[in-house]
Write a protein that binds this DNA or RNA. Structure first.
Ligand SMILES: [Mn+2]
Ligand SMILES: [Mn+2]
Ligand SMILES: [Zn+2]
Ligand SMILES: [Zn+2]
Lengths: 140, 140
DNA sequence: AATGTTGTTGCAAGAATTTGCAATAAGGAC
DNA sequence: GTCCTTATTGCAAATTCTTGCAACAACATT
């Protein structure tokens, strides 16, 4: 299935348009499979679509995140990073060496229950990054 | 107890120096009590210490966070925000209206156990921000 | 296929954040 | 109190990110 066929309907259903810019950015993230900084998205996407500009990339990533097609998370240094929205998951990043692993959402599900009950907030749905010390760095 | 008496030893013990810049920034955060953006820290601190510059503020906040004297977290829009390190806590931010509440760390303690057991990471210690929909916004 | 509406983009300018490096000054040693 | 070492800062420049607005183009309608 092509990226266009997959994503265009999701946008149209919400009254938005599919554009070459959005399609290219989705295509880049879809085939990258991992987190990318906005600038790296721009660098790869502008090769596929000459004329694309940085402001468009920043705005588009934000827009796609808002609409659930991509997901944002934080790298160690406080900057946003984006990936295509797929299976719900979270991350643990090593404070020392920056190594990163994924954790299944199921591990957090009980916490979300607790938080919703305790706070009155609903639809808690975050892509969270925790920080710790990885097994490797523990040996030093 | 003065800010200097409280914080200087913590830095010296790690081989770092206390400076007017660091003291002023700590003083601002200490008396503010809540999260502040780097730029807001700068604006308040430069009034107490004319000549202070932005690069110093950014570097100092990062440095103090690294050394546990302040804590950083993410506002809704992906930017870092800083507060003086006090009781361990986390946040839930409303996706709609940006309202923010604190949650006690005790609610997350079981999760941290689970994560450490499942991942092999240790010293997981994050100041986490979750996103959801607040009680007010649920009514609309 | 042509038209109209309005969601999107590029451009230019501005604001926020980072980096390299030489000058400065904190604090230990004497 | 003076001297030394080197951690820290200010400055200038570069980079990254944001914003306002006019031109453009997606796509629904005819
Ligand atoms: Mn992820
Ligand atoms: Mn906090
Ligand atoms: Zn590590
Ligand atoms: Zn709300």
């Amino acid at each position: 299935m092509t990226c266009s066929a997959r994503y265009a309907p999701q946008l149209r259903a919400r009254g938005f348009r599919m554009t070459p810019q959005r399609l290219t950015i989705l295509h880049v993230l879809h085939h990258e499979g991992t987190h990318l900084s906005p600038l790296n998205v721009f660098k790869k996407a502008v090769q596929e679509l000459p004329g694309l500009t940085e402001p468009t990339v920043y705005r588009t990533l934000e827009f796609l995140a808002q609409n659930g097609l991509v997901r944002s998370s934080h790298d160690g240094s406080g900057h946003l990073t984006y990936e295509i929205a797929a299976a719900d998951h979270h991350h643990i990043v090593c404070r020392i060496c920056k190594a990163e692993i994924e954790v299944e959402h199921s591990l957090l599900a009980p916490l979300y229950q607790t938080l919703e009950a305790a706070s009155g907030f609903t639809n808690i749905d975050s892509h969270v990054t925790f920080f710790g010390v990885c097994p490797n760095c523990q040996r030093q």
